[in-house]
Nucleic acid binder design. Structure first.
Ligand code: SF4
Ligand code: SF4
Lengths: 168, 168
DNA sequence: GTTATTCGGACATTTAATATCCGAATTAGG
DNA sequence: CCTAATTCGGATATTAAATGTCCGAATAAC
């Protein structure tokens, strides 16, 4: 019942990419250094986002990552699922088929009330995260931050994002 | 983002206790054997339920477990929290304080939008599980099961529950 | 008081999360 | 066109957590 901390890192990295100019990217090392986390492990999360089609990667010199689609089309659930997997949190092991009063497999066609209740709770969790997009996060962040802090970030971005190829 | 399978076992065990006659109990070994799971590990889950005040335990000869309060007052969330802990699934490591543009601690008094979104999603999850009680599970189980199967269970219960002390 | 029985917490083992490394692929530049 | 620099990608260690096991403390029957 713990969410991997890689999810937190991935969300932060993706949020940073929202502010990127069109056709530019950020390399994994820069994102890791900015957030003060191990480079190789941050790269692993970006890899997962890439496989899920959330970010686009360019290899070789002047390569890096950028968002693969508009920020309004990327929800927090998309990122969470990309890192943690799409499988359900409550894993039923069908122990009702065990023991002295075990049911036959044919009597287990429909999930029991217990499994249904957890499934419903997880759906509520997912729907809540699906309602929040990276665009929302970015907008609120700009609103709530000190102008001075935003200026620092823009400055850092320019120093890292400048030398980038625009070919996809 | 995985729920321990101990939760599944604990819910099954607690559901079984709903059917117990007043003042009777079931020992850990019986519950474990009935569900076809390791005895000692099932005992561990029951221990957690006991500490959380969900079940009451009696030691010594003819000891065992019984529900500590009415089935209508025990929700699936109560059981889940007893096994998995009450802490949040999304653990914020405050990485916004790291790196070249790190914020000062005093600027982090309020949680950011990311943490707030996950907190809200978890609340939705909890509320959904809180709405389902052991009484609901028991009632639906009786409705959906074959009479033959219920008869088997009653038979087994009588053979296990008979020799029990009624002193708390 | 003795003994049989059961829960309780302390102790191994296995699995998953965390962190790291080096090769494959691509591009810039000559 | 070829080379070298650079970056991503998957395979590989390490650490933490979940899973599974054991024996002592406590209780009740006799
Ligand atoms: S009865 Fe429900 S929770 Fe139990 S094993 Fe079957 S589907 Fe899973
Ligand atoms: S910005 Fe939000 S998610 Fe990131 S470290 Fe701070 S509270 Fe956590």
């Amino acid at each position: 019942m713990q969410i991997s901390k890689g999810v937190e890192w991935a969300v932060h990295a993706a949020s940073m990419m929202v502010a990127l100019p069109e056709g530019r990217g950020l390399k994994a090392a820069a994102l890791a250094h900015y957030h003060g986390v191990p480079t190789a492990y941050m790269a692993k999360q970006l890899q997962a986002l890439s496989k899920a089609g959330i970010v686009q990667s360019s290899r070789g010199a002047h390569g890096g990552y950028r968002l693969a689609k508009p920020a309004t089309d990327i929800s927090l659930w998309d990122i969470t699922a990309a890192i943690e997997g799409h499988g359900p949190a409550f894993r039923c092991t069908e122990i009702r088929q065990n023991g002295p009063c075990g049911l036959k497999r044919k009597d287990c066609r429909s999930p029991c009330q217990i499994a249904a209740a957890f499934s419903s709770a997880e759906r509520a969790f997912r729907d809540s995260l699906k309602a929040v997009t990276l665009a929302d996060i970015g907008l609120q962040f700009v609103r709530d931050s000190e102008p001075e802090h935003l200026s620092d970030i823009m400055h850092w971005l320019e120093s890292e994002v400048m030398p980038l190829s625009d070919t996809p």
